[in-house]
Design a protein around this nucleic acid. Structure first.
Lengths: 174, 174
DNA sequence: TTGCTAAATGATATCGACTTTCAATTTCAT
DNA sequence: ATGAAATTGAAAGTCGATATCATTTAGCAA
């Protein structure tokens, strides 16, 4: 084997997962609730004429409670702990649905697996990723956002969304 | 089929490929040469005790001349025009080599295909991607970079590299 | 509650983009 | 030129994502 393949959390690349810590512009920690999201999901299902099932409910709840950038495989594993017959395909379809409803964000950190992130209730954030210990810190910086808009405008663009990832070493690893 | 799969340039997602235009901070266009890179490659091969082959030479040259964010499939197609027996695996291995040598950058724009970008000779740049016509504009903004470093430092990080992508609509599509 | 019908589920098959394997070929130091 | 070592191309293998399909379920109507 030339290059080992990454398959699970035990052998993650240095930038894919890790505990989540959030900071706003002033470095205050923030928290997320999970109740409201289940309500949003219920609304979204109703709006589309979709059915409310045990599986969807449990998968969504498990995802909303997850604090990492979770992959389908990891989520499936968690879901099966309480619901052993739950299929991978259902987890896949539910996460696709959550993404369409705006309740999850798909991310690619370059390890070949799509990872899902909870939508923050306090707005957009970007990522700082430690290349050694895998810590992922989320941050917000309004000034950077404004500069991005300004730059884009100068080039004739209207920016709809963006992605900013900073890779480096955290204070414990530098 | 539930979701059509993207396979080639004719059916790209609105953000994957497109002609490349580069702007520096003052919106002046810049150009790239290709000679120096072949020399760098030769050095890199020698340093590693690797052999200089027709295939590597031709694949690298084709890539260096490509002006888009090219996928392996697209590059293989181009290479086969002049070298019909060239295999996909060789293109794959050569691009892996170029990436390791720092002469190519792997990128994921979310369409499931890895795309390769030429290393700019005038430093790091970021991307503006039109969601409608697929135009990809590259830009540089030193102020944003400085702010990123500042933010990271405040959170105890040393930034090694970063990725900034702005998705929106260009002046022709807004 | 019961029956019905469309939607959802889960097991499995398929797809597609890599990635590896291996026998044949080529490079290059001697 | 020669032989060891690297490279190549074809084909097979891998793995995550996605589709298929028979069975099960949700939710409305009687």
């Amino acid at each position: 084997m030339e290059t080992p393949k990454i398959k699970n959390t035990d052998n993650l690349p240095p930038f894919a997962a890790g505990a989540r810590v959030r900071y706003n512009k002033n470095q205050k920690m923030t928290k997320q609730r999970t109740e409201t999201k289940m309500e949003l999901l219920a609304n979204c299902l109703e709006k589309r004429g979709l059915k409310s099932t045990k599986q969807r409910h449990y998968i969504a709840d498990t995802f909303f409670r997850s604090n990492t950038h979770i992959s389908l495989e990891e989520l499936h594993k968690k879901v099966k702990r309480k619901s052993p017959r739950a299929g991978y395909a259902t987890v896949y379809r539910t996460m696709k649905l959550l993404t369409e409803c705006g309740l999850a964000i798909e991310r690619q950190f370059g390890d070949g697996q799509t990872r899902f992130e909870n939508v923050p209730e306090d707005g957009h954030h970007d990522h700082l990723i430690c290349l050694k210990c895998s810590e992922i810190v989320e941050f917000q910086n309004e000034t950077i956002e404004q500069l991005q808009d300004k730059t884009a405008t100068e080039l004739g663009f209207n920016v709809v969304r963006h992605k900013l990832e900073l890779y480096g070493y955290c204070k414990n690893c530098k």
